[in-house]
Structure formats: C-alpha cells, structure tokens
C-alpha cells in the first residue's frame, strides 16, 4: 500500500461520509426546501471527493501503466464539471416549482417570495 492508495481511501471515506449525511438529512428535515439543502449539496460535496479518488486512480494507471487510462481520468473530470453545473440548476428548478405550486416552507421565520407573489 503506497501513498496513492492512502489518498484514494481518504477521499473515498470523505465522499461516502457526506453522501451518507445527505441521506440522513433527507429523512430528518421537515419540508422540501430543507431536504433539498441536504439532498443536493452534501451529495455534490461527496461526489467531488469520490470523483477525485477515481481521478487519482486513473492518474496512477496513466503514469505507471499506459496512456489508455487517460480516458478514465479525463472523463471523470468532465462528469465532475457536469455535476457541478447541473446540480444547483436542478435544485433551483425543484425549489421554484415547489414554491409556485404553493408549498410553504415549514417553520419559516420569513417568506419574502410569498409577499411578492401575493401582490
């Protein structure tokens, strides 16, 4: 076991921890908005680390084995960029759709958007 393995294990552990946390948050939070917080962002952060582990794996094989493994590294990187772009967009779309169909944020101390839509 060399330092590549150690780094990959650390990244995978962090990623798995945050993805598990997202699952717990999904069960614990009261309404769609707070669940979106847990369900989209912790998974983004977790996925960054899981992807980093795969990228490290690919880079090691790229250096020591053959150029064919560059495809693993670069495709994982592209997937990571796509996750980073689409995840907040999806969360935004769900939140907006929920508010437009009349779902009130639970236990909210203030709702400025309702004031605006009420006008």
């Amino acid at each position: 076991m060399d330092w590549w393995d150690v780094a990959m294990m650390v990244f995978l552990s962090i990623g798995a921890f945050f993805n598990a946390l997202a699952a717990v948050g999904l069960l614990r939070f009261p309404d769609v908005y707070t669940r979106l917080h847990a369900g989209t962002k912790c998974t983004t952060f977790g996925t960054i680390f899981v992807c980093l582990a795969v990228i490290l794996f690919g880079v090691r094989l790229w250096i020591y084995e053959s150029d064919a493994y560059s495809i693993l590294t670069i495709h994982t990187f592209i997937a990571l960029v796509c996750v980073l772009l689409t995840n907040p967009t999806g969360a935004h779309a769900i939140a907006r759709a929920a508010h437009r169909s009349g779902v009130k944020p639970a236990r909210a101390v203030i709702d400025e958007l309702e004031k605006k839509e009420g006008k």
Binding site: R107, V109, E112, L113
Partner: peptide, 17 residues
C-alpha cells in the same frame, strides 16, 4: 455547518430577498 444541523436538528429556515 449543515452536517451539524442534520445531526442536531437545529434549523431556522426562511426565504429572504
């Protein structure tokens, strides 16, 4: 911070402008 809130359940949500 959100990890802390998931575990303790301390939230104070709202929509601000």
């Amino acid at each position: 911070d959100v990890a802390y809130r998931v575990i303790t359940g301390k939230i104070k949500p709202g929509i601000v402008k």
